[in-house]
Every structure is written in structure tokens, then in C-alpha cells.
Simulated assay, not measured.
Amino acid sequence: MIKSMTGFGRGEAQDAERQFTVEIKSVNHRYNDIVVRMPKRLTYLEEKIKDLIKNEVKRGRVEVYISLENLGEGDTKISLNRSLVNQYYQCLQEIKEGFDVKDDISVSVLSKFPDVFIIESKEEDEDEIWQCLKSAVLKAVEMLMKMRLAEGEKLAEDIVGRCDYIGNIMKTIEKKNPEVVQEYKNKLRDRINEMLEDAIQIDESRLSIEVAIFADKSSIAEEIVRLYSHIGQLKKSLKEQQPIGRKLDFLIQEMNREINTIGSKSSDLEIVNYVVEVKSELEKIREQVQNIE
């Protein structure tokens, strides 16, 4: 089943200390480009996150947004430096008594002195953090892949329908092509008769040679066969499990090449109009293929 490169996924996970929310969105891109935006203190997990996503997403630009909410005491611990506060207090008392200062010694005054508070980073279990974050990432990836698969299924249906339509047009062109040679022969005969005014009998062998040369130059049988083959390969590729976006893009290029050759060889207005119609459908398929992984 083919996958679209467009999708969105969201996942949440929490333990006793924290809650992670992960949002992933993907759009079409030539390569596999993953960008992770998350709190700086979690950057050491970036490669693990990318590896999880790469297991499922083979192509496309993927943007990952991670937010963290602390549910416990947080990652820092603040305590009072009692010894230092006591020294500050004693010094202030000396100032008050020695210089006859009547102002009170308040908490706000003491709290402004440097190093009154001790701030310590709480040691965290990195494996515990990763297990919680991993759960949220996997949930977001699962939702993303479901959306990409659903979108891919719709793209496949549209492409198959357009391929069938092109196939029907090619059958019409294939049926019409032999008539073009006969029409050329009749027109050539009429033109010669008009120019010579039936004064000289037409050399049938010479006329046949001219018609044969025209038929050879205007033959589109090979192009039609190759175009049928490309249509078959394209429809078959849509059932493959691995990423096929680049393969489909190549097949569309080859189909365009064949239909352009048919157009350049054809002098019949009806066939030329069919060629224009096929090229229009191929362009629509090409636009759809740009979104396939």
C-alpha cells in the first residue's frame, strides 16, 4: 500500500514526574528530512527520536514538536544557606548597634544578599525520561502513518482511474492510426489527380512507395506498446509495500516521452487532440506522485 508524504500525528505519555506531548507533521520532500524541536535539556535524545521516526517514514520533511510538563517537584531544588544567612544577620546587627541605625532587619533585606539560596539541579533518570518520551513519540508516529496510509489509498485510486482513462484514449489512437495512412493515400491520390487533371494515369507502384514511406515515418506502434507497458508497470507499482515515489516519477517521465513522440509523428488533428488530453492527465498524475513516499 502506498503512503502519502502528507500527514499529522499527536501522542501523549506521562509518568509520576512528567508529561510529554508530541506532535508530528510531514509534507512532501525529495529526501528524508527530520527536524526536532524540543526543550534544550532533552537534546541528547534527538538522534533516538529521529531513529524511531526513520523506521516508519522513508521520505518527506518531518517536523517534530515536543513539549514537557513537570508533574513532580521539578528538575531543580532550592534550599536555604542557613550558615550564610546567619552571618549576614550578625553583620547587620553589628551595623545597627554600632552606628545607631533604627531600621529593622527584614526577610526582604536578607534575601537580596548573594548565595542566600542554594539552587541544585535534581538528578534525573535518563532511561526513565526516554521511556516516557518514546511512548509519546510512538503514539504520534502511529497516528501519522494511519493518516499517510489513508491519504495514499486515495491517491492510488485517483492514479489508477487516470491510468485507465489514458489506456482508453490509447486504444482509440491505436484504432485510428491505420486510418491515417489510408487517408494520406487517398489525399495524395486526389492531389495528384487535381494537379494532372487526370491527363496521366497514376503510377500505383510509385504511389504505394510514397505511402509506405509515410507509414514508416508516422508509425507510432512502438510508442503505443511502450506506453501500455508503462501504464501496467505504474499500476503494478501502486501495490508494492516499499516506497515507490521516485519510481513512479520516472515512469511518468517515460510516459511523457512516448506521448510526445506520438504527437510529433502524427499529422491527424484528432490524434493530436487525444495526445493533448493524455498529456493533461499525465500532468495531473505527476502532481499526485509528488506527494507519494
Rank of each mutant, 00 (worst) to 15 (best):
C132R: 06
V109W: 05
D125T: 12
I129V: 15
K102Y: 10
K112T: 07
S111H: 00
I119H: 03
D104F: 10
S121Y: 11
E126D: 14
D115N: 12
A140I: 04
V116D: 04
E128Y: 12
E124A: 12
D125G: 13
V137H: 03
F113K: 03
W130Q: 01
K134V: 07
K112L: 05
K139Y: 11
E126I: 11
A136Q: 02
G98Y: 06
E124K: 12
V107C: 07
E126S: 12
A136C: 08
D100W: 04
I129K: 08
V109T: 15
E124Q: 13
A136R: 10
K102N: 14
D103P: 01
S106K: 09
D115C: 04
D125S: 08
I119G: 04
E126Y: 09
K134C: 14
V101C: 11
I129D: 00
E97S: 09
D127K: 14
V101A: 13
E97R: 15
K102R: 11
S135N: 15
L133Q: 01
D125N: 15
S121G: 14
V109Q: 14
F117P: 01
K139W: 02
K112C: 04
G98R: 14
L138I: 09
I105N: 08
W130Y: 11
V116I: 07
I105V: 10
D115R: 08
V107M: 07
E97C: 01
W130H: 01
E123I: 14
A140C: 09
D104R: 13
K102P: 02
I119E: 05
S121W: 12
F99D: 05
K122G: 06
W130N: 05
A140Y: 03
K112P: 00
E97Y: 06
K112V: 04
D103L: 14
D127W: 05
S111F: 06
L138T: 13
S106R: 14
K122T: 15
P114I: 03
E128D: 10
D127Y: 04
S121L: 11
S135W: 04
K122D: 03
D103M: 11
V109K: 13
V101H: 02
E126R: 09
D100Y: 02
D115Q: 10
L133P: 05
E124V: 14
V137M: 09
D104E: 15
E123F: 09
S111I: 07
P114C: 00
A136T: 07
P114G: 00
A140W: 02
S135Y: 06
V137W: 04
Q131A: 13
K139I: 11
K134P: 11
S111C: 09
I105G: 10
D125C: 10
E97K: 11
K134W: 06
I105A: 02
L110T: 01
L110H: 00
F99P: 04
